[in-house]
């Protein structure tokens, strides 16, 4: 049981709708394109409607309109925020000298936000964790050196267009193969992930709908 539907009439109706949609999507497997396209449009329409409602109820009303109307003096930052949005919305017809600084401000702000987190939260702690600590014993040291060697070789694979010696070129070749191996392993994870989703859908049809699975 997926547990999302109640055992009453409404739940039964929900199960039937889910079954029809699932079978409709799978009709693509036997070459039926029209139903599949209709369901794509249905998904896009539902997602857009849901996102619009979410934006109205969770962002526009409580965070913008209500504070502006009821308590504007205590929310001074909302006015420049509204101005920023107005500039971005009118970017097509406003002069470039107005739009460019605003766009630069937004892009730089978002980039600094993400980059700061990546450096403080990932890069530095991961570098610290990758330091070879002799106290961890033989296997820890070997792991550390293997990780270091793979990292250097993969980084060499990203050297494009710069002058290379024979040694660096060979290292870059090995790095490319290591990269392909890594991507292949990730593909394997992805395959398992997607297959499990298909098995889950089959189990939904056989169990929740037909009641053939316990």
């Amino acid at each position: 049981m997926n547990g999302f539907f109640t055992p009453d009439l409404v739940g039964g109706l929900g199960t039937w709708v889910a079954v029809l949609l699932t079978v409709g999507v799978w009709s693509y497997a036997v070459g039926e394109r029209t139903i599949f396209r209709l369901l794509q449009l249905l998904l896009a329409g539902l997602a857009t409607g849901y996102l619009a409602l979410l934006a109205i109820h969770h962002v526009l009303l409580p965070r913008l309109l209500v504070p502006l109307v009821t308590d504007a003096p205590n929310h001074p930052l909302l006015f420049p925020a509204v101005a920023l949005v107005a500039v971005m919305a009118g970017a097509a017809w406003l002069p470039r000298r107005v739009v460019a600084p605003v766009a630069a401000l937004l892009v730089a702000g978002v980039a600094a936000f993400a980059l700061g987190g990546a450096i403080v939260g990932t890069l530095l702690p991961q570098m610290a964790a990758a330091l070879i600590d002799p106290a961890t014993g033989g296997s820890g040291v070997i792991d550390g050196f293997v990780a270091l060697a793979i990292t250097i070789l993969v980084l060499l694979a990203f050297l494009h267009g710069s002058p290379r010696g024979r040694f660096v070129q060979r290292g870059a070749g090995i790095g490319r193969w290591l990269l392909i191996g890594g991507i292949g392993a990730w593909f394997g994870f992805l395959l398992v992930s997607r297959l499990s989703l298909l098995v889950d859908r089959v189990a939904f049809l056989l169990g929740d709908w037909l009641g053939l699975l316990r």
Partner: peptide, 16 residues
């Protein structure tokens, strides 16, 4: 907790 049915092993094996 009848809603906690894990993915079955046999179809995963067949699919793989």
């Amino acid at each position: 907790a009848v809603t906690r049915r894990p993915i079955s092993a046999l179809p995963m094996l067949a699919g793989m």
